[in-house]
Amino acid sequence: MGVTQRLELPEVPDDPRHPPGWLPDVLLAFIVVVAAFAPVPATEFAPAGPLALALVLSPIAIVPFRRRWPSAVLVLLLLVFGSAAACGTLSPGVGVAVGMAVFHLATRTTRRRAMLAGGCAAILLMLLSLLASVGSPLDPRVVQFGLLVAFAAAAGDGARSRRAYVKAISDRAERAVQTREDEARRRVSEERLRIARDLHDTVAHQISVISLNAGVASTAVDTRPDKAKESLATIRGAARTVLKEIGDLMAMLRADDDSGAVPRPQSGLAQLDRLVAQFAAAGLDVHTRVEGSPDAVTGAADLVAYRVVQEALTNAHKHGAEGRAHVLVHVAADAVTVAVTNLMDVGQDGYRIPPGSGLGLVGLRERVASVRGTVDAGPAPGGWKLEAVLPVDREETP
């Protein structure tokens, strides 16, 4: 199991080519001042008086507010242009300011609204130009203002589309990173659960054998030394077995790849007699009945069936009464049923449910669910019963 690292998108440094926010306002102010005071061949482009000059220069103070109130600034600039035209002045600086306001508005709204606002602003600008006694609305001096605003609207929509595209790409990359992180966490969680199940299956039975025989040895050491020696021998054998199984498990976990690891024999119903013999050596009398052919159960279902028997016999050995248990394995055409029953202590309130963390049954339910099976555990007429039904894949059946 590897250590997961949080995957992060590299921070993109600010583009040095991107101009600062105040630069467009400074450039517009420069254009407005030059258009107001530079000599021009056409008299209608020059301010006709102090009022017209004030109107021509007013965009310098109005345009910076476009970031906060883009629509209001656009309307106000159109009024300024119309007022200057009524005074006999067609100000190129005010026209450029209107184009900047349209551009900014187009970057903040949808394409439909941007085109509508740009078209209306271009038409109004051309109509307001007639107040300067230019003559025809198709005069090149009038058309240039409409083209300027239309181009600004198109450029603003293009900038908005590009910004939306970049944002979509960034969001997609972030979602991809998040998905990879979630997948890594899911795999780590599944690996932890698998290791926990393997450790429980490997250790639980042998530790219960050690615990029970340690109790027998401590009580019989003075009265029955031979019994105590027998229990100590059983403890020694169980300890060797659990150390070997843990060593095999750790070797498998530390292997760099599956090809370099030595495969362990796969547990299954074929090893049922050996499993029963281990419990018999530990003092549990197990009666086994197999109906059908266990060879028909292969793959994951075979392993899970073995683990069901192992977990049920471990609980019967630890918590059962009279040291007896019955195992029934019924193999049908489409499913295998594993049932393990044992006697339980009966008190005044009925069956005494054994104390414990219950992690063994939790892990067992997870194993059974992984092969689409069902498991049920609880009191039964014969004592305590654990029964699991596991579907058999026909493709795996020989």
Rank of each mutant, 00 (worst) to 15 (best):
Asp258Asn: 01
His319Cys: 11
Val308Ser: 10
Ala281Gly: 13
Leu243Arg: 10
Val242Asp: 02
Arg254Cys: 02
Ile235Ala: 01
Arg289Ala: 00
Tyr306Lys: 05
Val309Gly: 05
Gln266Trp: 02
Ala321Asn: 11
Asp302Trp: 00
Thr288Gln: 04
Val286Gln: 00
Gln278Ile: 02
Asp273Ile: 04
Ser267Met: 08
Asp248Ile: 00
Gln271Asn: 07
Leu303Gln: 11
Ala296Trp: 00
Glu322Gln: 14
Ala255Asp: 06
Gly247Met: 01
Ala321Pro: 03
Leu275Arg: 10
Leu249His: 07
Asp302Ala: 13
Leu253Lys: 08
His319Gln: 08
Ala270Gln: 15
Leu303Val: 13
Gln278Arg: 09
Ala261Met: 14
Ala277Thr: 11
Ser259Lys: 07
Leu313Val: 11
Arg254Phe: 05
Gln266Pro: 01
Ala239Glu: 02
Leu313Ser: 13
Arg307Leu: 07
Ala281Asn: 11
Thr241Trp: 00
Leu313Asp: 12
Gly268Gln: 07
Pro265Gly: 05
Arg289Ser: 05
Asp257Thr: 12
Ala261Phe: 11
Ser293Phe: 00
Gly299His: 01
Asp248Val: 02
His287Val: 11
Glu322Met: 14
His287Arg: 14
Thr241Lys: 04
Met252Glu: 12
Tyr306Cys: 02
Asp248Cys: 00
Gln271Ala: 14
Asp256Ala: 13
Val262Thr: 15
Gln310Cys: 06
Asp257Glu: 10
Arg264Gln: 15
Leu284Asp: 07
Ala296Ser: 03
Arg264Cys: 08
Pro263Met: 07
Ala296Met: 01
